[in-house]
Each structure stands twice: as structure tokens, then as C-alpha cells.
Design a protein around this nucleic acid. Structure first.
Lengths: 238, 238
DNA sequence: GACAGATTCAAACACGTGTTTCAAACTCCC
DNA sequence: GGGAGTTTGAAACACGTGTTTGAATCTGTC
């Protein structure tokens, strides 16, 4: 088992032991935070993996929370750099842009080359937020939501209200995040599910098709939301 | 601030102080586990809310994990009793059964009268599983998944493969769970979102419409999954 | 009322946590 | 090579954790 520190130091680019230790800490911390979350992660575990002393975190970052914040933004930028959202190019058909949006989103949160670190950390932030969530929303979640809105606006019919667009956006993001947030359950329900690149591509196509098909139907059924008179609310009677 | 214990004792039905303490512990534990999760919850906090001694948990339940397991199944059964899944009645149109499935699911995980305890605990189990997850999958998640499959089988066209049914099911559950798992984000993106009974009903209708519309499209487009030749994989450039 | 058993209680135990301390080792520059 | 400044290291600190202990109190029964 080679420590992160060794990997960093052997990989050349050793700009002094200060930066090497800092790098090793960031890498080890990314693994640990993704595996067990901010609160459950221990500085001792991180430092052991980075082959650094327990005091290293406080020396280089001040405290655990600052280290976490740096890891979070670094992983977020890394994921966005490796799998960027599609450009907002009006020349590209909106359906294609939606597919690209879904694909890049899925890859950011699930692709193996990132060990799904970003996705796991995001999932934890949503279910069990830390003080870092506000910045995360501002810097990466909200921009993403706005981009999806813009794609959906192009896709939907003229009469579609902002509210329907918002709901449709959440339906799409919900489908994507399901595979990220519920991975332990999906693996138990469908043990044959590989969660590899091939399946990611299959998921991309399914979510895109499912959502495009849904949007076509919603546009076709027109704007009035007063439909379905047959079902009164809550009339289950066994 | 009245403690759970007081509430229990004042509410009559005091079948001896043993059972009263046990009940108070279960209630307090449900609140705490839902608020901060199994690992972050402390026995001292639970006992303080239950107005019981620190040793009470070990005396009545053995240890923290056993208490957690009991809370989990109790809350799960409570949610299922208050908002049961629709019966598998072939006389009811599948579209209606889907709507009832979505509504009861949303109510189980989000409705205020349960303080969304069940939903929060489930969300935590999925993102950060404990040893209780296996039983949860076996006793409540898998049966639910099977019921959804049965509804979808009735809804989809004849040629629909098991795999497409599975994917569609996950698309639907993903939409439902999004509002549960991502509540902190949704509240930040849309501060006006009330998360009340009215919105639950609106969500029920949206998710049902969206999904029915999607399924109609998928059935119509036929079984062959080899479509969309125009987009080669990963050709983003820029 | 007295006794056995059940229940509660304050205190303690053993351990793990984030953080701090300060001396030792190292680095860099002259 | 020496010394200032940086970085590391082992140890300790203060606190919070789940669990245990054994005495005190309560409960029901004769």
C-alpha cells in the first residue's frame, strides 16, 4: 500500500516539501471525506493516509473545516473541468444539449476516474449539509440549474409556465441523482448493475429519452393545469 | 419545552414506568436519529430529551445500534400505516394506481405529520448506510420496487423489456426522492417552496403526469434501443 | 409492612476526537 | 558552514463518546 504522500513525491513536480505535504493532505482528505463524510472523517486518518503528522492539517489549513472547504471546491472544479457542461450554443438543438447536460452531469458525479468523489461529497452535503453548502449552491448548483432551465425553455412549448419548467428540471435532476444518492440500494436491488462507463452511457440515453418524451407530452397537453377530474384527492379506501 | 417523557406520561396509557421510559426513548431517538443520523446522534442527547438517565438506553435496548434498528422499523411501519401503498387491484386503471403510488410514497417520506422522520432516516441510510440497510431493503424497499414494477408492466406496451421497466421505475423513484434527499438545496434554490400538503399534492400530479407522458412516448417509439445515430459519444469540443 | 425483583441514577471507565505545544529537523540563502 | 525561517514530530490537552457499575429507589405481592 503506497501512501498518497509517496505517490506525490515520486511523481516529480516536487515543489518543496511544503507543497508536497499540502497536496498529499488534499488528496487523502478527498478520499476520506468522500468515503465517510466531513463529520465522520478524522484528521488522524487523513494524516496517516498522507503520511503526515497529525499537526499537519492545522499547520497547512488551520482546521478541519477549512481543509474540507478546500477539498470540496477543488473536487468540484476538477469534476467540472473533466466533464464540462455543454456550451449554451443556440445552434445545437435543445434535445442534443439536454443529452449532453445529462451525460456530463452523470459523469461528474459517478464516473470512476474521479472515484465518484465529487458525487459522494455532494450527496452528503445535500442529505446532511455543512456550512459549505451555501457556497456550493451559489458556485456550482445554481449555475447548473440555470443552464438546465435554459435548455428546457428551448425544448418546451411556448405556453409552458416557469413553474412547469422548474418542476421538469427537478424531475430530470432527480433521475440523475438517484443513481448517485441511492447507489447502495441500487446495488442491493440489482446486484448485476455494473456502474461502469457503459452503464453511464445507457443511463444517459434512458434519462434523456424519458425526459424528452415526457416534455413532448406535457407541451402537447397544453397549459391549463386543471386536468384529470376523475381523481378526487385522497380517496383511497383500501 | 416539554420533554418526550412528560408527554408520554401525561397522555395517560401509562402501562408502568418501564414501558413509559421505553416509549419516551423510542420517540426521542426517532427525532434525534432523523435530525442528525445514527452516527452523529448521541445517547446523552436522546436520554436528555426522553428525561431518562444515560444508562436507560443500555438497560432497555442493549446498545445504540439496537435502539436505532427498532426506531427504524417502527417509523417505517408507522409511515406505511398512515400512507399505505395502493392495493394491487386490476380493476383500477394503472395510471390511477401510479398516481396513488406516487402520492403515498411522497407522503410517507415528506409529510409533516411524521416530521418527515422516515424520509430523513431513509435518505441517510442510502447515502451513508448502516448495518440496518439490508433489512430495510428486504422489508420495505424491495416490496415497494416490486409493486412499482407491476404498475409499470400494466402501463407499458407489450414490447417493453424488463430493463426498460427497471429504468423507468428508477426514473420515477428518483423524481420522488429528489424532494426528500435534496430538501436543503431546493429550499435554497426556491425559498418560496413551502413543502406543505398542497405542494405535495402538486408534486404528486407533476411526477405522475411527467412519468405517464414519458411512458407513452417510450412505448410509442417501439422496442429497438438502437436509435439516435447523430450523436457520437463524447464529442464536446469547447 | 417486608421482601424480591425491576428500574433508575450518578459516577466512572476506556477510548477517540480536534487542536495545541514546543522542541527537533530541515531548507534555503549568504 | 551557519543561521533564520519553515516544516515536522511526539506528546499532551480538553472534551465528548458509548458503555458499565453498583448502590439507591421504586413496584407489585404476600
Amino acid at each position: 500500500m503506497s501512501t498518497t504522500r509517496q505517490r506525490v513525491r515520486e511523481s516529480g513536480a516536487d515543489a518543496g516539501s511544503h507543497d508536497a505535504t499540502r497536496r498529499a493532505l488534499l488528496d487523502a482528505a478527498a478520499d476520506v471525506f468522500a468515503e465517510v463524510g466531513f463529520r465522520q472523517a478524522t484528521i488522524r486518518d487523513i494524516c496517516k493516509r498522507a503520511a503526515a503528522n497529525v499537526a499537519a492539517v492545522n499547520y497547512h489549513f488551520g482546521d478541519k473545516e477549512t481543509l474540507y472547504a478546500e477539498v470540496l471546491t477543488e473536487q468540484s472544479r476538477l469534476a467540472m473541468r473533466l466533464h464540462p457542461s455543454p456550451p449554451d450554443d443556440p445552434a445545437v438543438p435543445a434535445a442534443i444539449r439536454l443529452e449532453q447536460f445529462v451525460r456530463s452531469f452523470l459523469q461528474r458525479v459517478l464516473s470512476a476516474e474521479l472515484s465518484a468523489r465529487h458525487g459522494r461529497m455532494m450527496a452528503r452535503e445535500m442529505v446532511d449539509p455543512t456550512r459549505a453548502l451555501d457556497r456550493l449552491v451559489k458556485e456550482s448548483i445554481r449555475p447548473n440549474a440555470l443552464q438546465l432551465s435554459s435548455i428546457l425553455r428551448d425544448l418546451a412549448g411556448q405556453g409552458t409556465t416557469e413553474e412547469v419548467l422548474r418542476l421538469a428540471g427537478m424531475s430530470i435532476v432527480g433521475q440523475i441523482l438517484f443513481y448517485c444518492h441511492c447507489q447502495p440500494v441500487v446495488r442491493r436491488l440489482f446486484p448485476e448493475s455494473p456502474y461502469d462507463a457503459g452503464q453511464l452511457e445507457q443511463l444517459t440515453r434512458h434519462i434523456t429519452d424519458f425526459s424528452l418524451s415526457a416534455l413532448r407530452g406535457l407541451s402537447a397537453s397544453g397549459s391549463p393545469s386543471r386536468r384529470r377530474p376523475q381523481t378526487k384527492r385522497r380517496r383511497a379506501r383500501t
